[in-house]
Computed example of a mutant assay.
Amino acid sequence: MYAFTFKERRINAHNVAYKWCNMCLQKPINDTYIRAVIIRVERDEMTTAEIRETKPAILRGLRHRCPACGEGQLFARYLKVKDTCSECGEELYHHRADDGPAYLTILIVGHVMGFALHGLFGYLRDDPLILALVLCTIATVLALALLPRMKGLVVGYQWAKEMHGFSKPRARLPEASEA
């Protein structure tokens, strides 16, 4: 029922071909492990994995660039993500950023404002109105500057992890009888 060949690096079980990675070759082969591999992959439709690097995709998103190529603009307007990249044609309308960028922006702005309050309180203790105006200005400018970058970060992360429809259909591996 099970066949394993080190030369081909393939498991054949119920007409499913699985391409082994280096980590899998180092593990001992037994029936339990083979069943776990078969459960993890789709039964009759194997696909090859395209590795998408997370860090470059996030950095491209932070720079308002397409997470796939890094050349095309990510946004059509302030927070409106383009449907497709003008350079590589990658579909970007799949993103589901929702409230994530707002939460990240509030997290960062809140921490910066805490340090700003501690730093400015000693200088502006006698004039609380000026202190409030300075802190409000800093918070507003920082939030408006960070929000599109955080949205780009979230879109880049979703693209790299193939979330919400960002995965593309992939080529099938040959069946055991074809190899």
Rank of each mutant, 00 (worst) to 15 (best):
F4W: 10
K7T: 08
E8C: 06
R9Q: 12
R10Y: 01
R10C: 05
A13S: 09
N15D: 14
Y18C: 12
Y18W: 15
W20C: 08
C21P: 00
N22K: 15
K27N: 05
N30C: 07
N30F: 05
A36L: 13
V37G: 05
I38C: 11
E42V: 03
R43D: 07
R43M: 07
M46R: 14
T47A: 14
E50W: 04
R52L: 12
A57F: 04
A57D: 02
A57Q: 03
L59N: 08
L59G: 02
G61L: 08
R63P: 00
H64S: 04
C66D: 08
C69H: 09
G72E: 09
F75K: 03
R77K: 15
K80S: 08
K82P: 00
D83K: 15
E87A: 15
G89V: 04
L92I: 01
H94N: 13
D98V: 02
G100V: 02
G100N: 05
P101D: 08
A102Y: 08
A102L: 15
A102F: 13
T105H: 03
L107D: 02
L107Q: 05
L107G: 10
V109R: 04
G110D: 11
H111D: 02
H118E: 09
F121C: 10
G122R: 11
G122W: 03
G122P: 00
G122V: 11
P128T: 14
P128W: 14
I130H: 04
I130G: 01
I130P: 00
L131H: 06
L131D: 01
L131Y: 11
L133Q: 09
C136E: 02
C136T: 15
T137E: 02
I138G: 02
T140Y: 06
V141E: 01
A143P: 00
L144H: 05
L146I: 12
L146C: 08
P148M: 09
M150A: 12
V155A: 04
V155M: 07
Y157V: 01
A160D: 01
E162N: 11
E162W: 02
M163W: 13
H164C: 06
H164D: 08
H164L: 05
G165E: 04
G165W: 11
P169Q: 13
P169V: 05
R170Q: 14
R172N: 10
L173M: 13
L173P: 00
L173G: 01
A176E: 11
